[in-house]
Computed example of a mutant assay.
Amino acid sequence: MSSNGDRFEIKFWGVRGSIPCPGTQTVRYGGNTTCVEMRVGRERLIFDGGTGLRILGDSLLPEMPVTGHLFFTHSHWDHIQGFPFFAPAFIPGNKFHIYGLPAPNGATIKQRLHDQMLHPNFPVPLQIMQANLEFYDIEAKELVQINDVTVETGRLNHPGEALGYRVTYQGLAAVFVTDTEHFPDSLDNNVLHLARDAEVLIIDTTYTDEEYHDPKSSKVGWGHSTWQEAVKIAKVANVKKLVLFHHDPAHNDAFLDNIKLQVQKVFPNTLLAQEGLVIDLSLV
């Protein structure tokens, strides 16, 4: 796009689920857990705070002061474990708006981020963070308006509940749907609605169909989906570009390369999320 005011770019800072998996076998796709940044117009939106959030935060240090909007899908460990290491949150003058779905037990997103930083689990409390942090509890189907950027929410099929997000700006849409499990006999209408006619769909594809239905180690009910099911969603929702996301830590570079070959045969405009990948929606 021609200027910052017209920008709609997505950058991937963490693409794994469950647990970080650094090592020689995960170099190309990356080993950090989930964190995706969207630069939309003049706004910075961040989705999830896995260990990739630490890397993103370090990259922002030369830009102080910064303002951003941080959206959590849910508070499972792999989606919040980078937050205590998000350096800009410790620096006065920065401001972050933080959004999340209240947990089934009523705990707010502020409470859950606070609790993971309590002794004996962490040496310093959330109150040490000197940036201006504003917290918002949001519900499924709620719209969040950030100037001329619209963020739409939808409930996902995941243990403990989770939110998916659709970001719309100047007629372009990017969708972030993780963690979610497909239904056995029909497509998830919540996911289809979020993904409708989107330029980019980033979606949970932790498993292959073979792994998901493995009779010796079934993944049914674990809250995650497969690349085969993602293709079904992308086709029905008329998605332009599909991005496979939330890679299983057991899937090394070679395994993911093989998935890419398979999925591009049935949905050619597919990418596998990898750390450092940048997508410009105007070029999709």
Rank of each mutant, 00 (worst) to 15 (best):
V177W: 05
S218F: 00
I98T: 10
G276N: 02
F12Y: 07
S225W: 05
P123S: 15
D48I: 08
R28A: 13
A195P: 03
R7F: 02
I98N: 08
A89R: 06
L272I: 10
Y29P: 00
K219P: 05
G82S: 01
C35G: 02
T150N: 08
T208Y: 01
A174P: 04
L194F: 08
P62W: 11
G5L: 10
L172W: 04
L281N: 06
T205L: 00
F47M: 00
G93Y: 06
I109Q: 06
P92W: 07
L261S: 12
L53G: 04
P20F: 08
E9Q: 12
K260M: 12
F72Y: 15
P20T: 10
A140E: 11
A89C: 09
Q274R: 14
V66G: 10
N132Q: 15
R44P: 08
L60D: 09
K141M: 12
P65N: 10
R39T: 12
L194C: 12
E139I: 10
I233L: 06
T208L: 02
P65C: 09
S3N: 10
A234H: 01
I146Y: 01
D257E: 08
V231E: 07
T270L: 08
A198F: 05
R39P: 00
G276I: 06
Y212C: 13
K95N: 14
V167P: 07
T205M: 01
F12G: 01
Q116G: 01
F86T: 02
E181T: 06
K240C: 12
R42D: 14
H251E: 02
T108S: 15
M129V: 07
I259W: 02
F72M: 13
T153I: 06
L53K: 00
E142A: 13
H119W: 15
Y212V: 13
N94M: 12
H182T: 07
I128V: 15
G276E: 02
V231C: 06
G154M: 07
K265H: 04
P88C: 10
T206K: 07
G223C: 04
I128D: 13
V124N: 09
H119I: 14
R16L: 09
G17K: 07
Y29K: 08
Q116H: 03
N94C: 15
A195C: 04
S282Q: 15
L272P: 00
T205N: 02
V177L: 08
L192E: 09
F135D: 09
Y165C: 07
A198T: 05
P88H: 09
A230I: 03
V231T: 09
E63W: 14
I146M: 08
V36C: 07
H182Y: 11
S218Y: 05
V220R: 11
I46K: 06
M38N: 02
D78H: 15
F267W: 02
V151K: 04
D48V: 05
H247V: 02
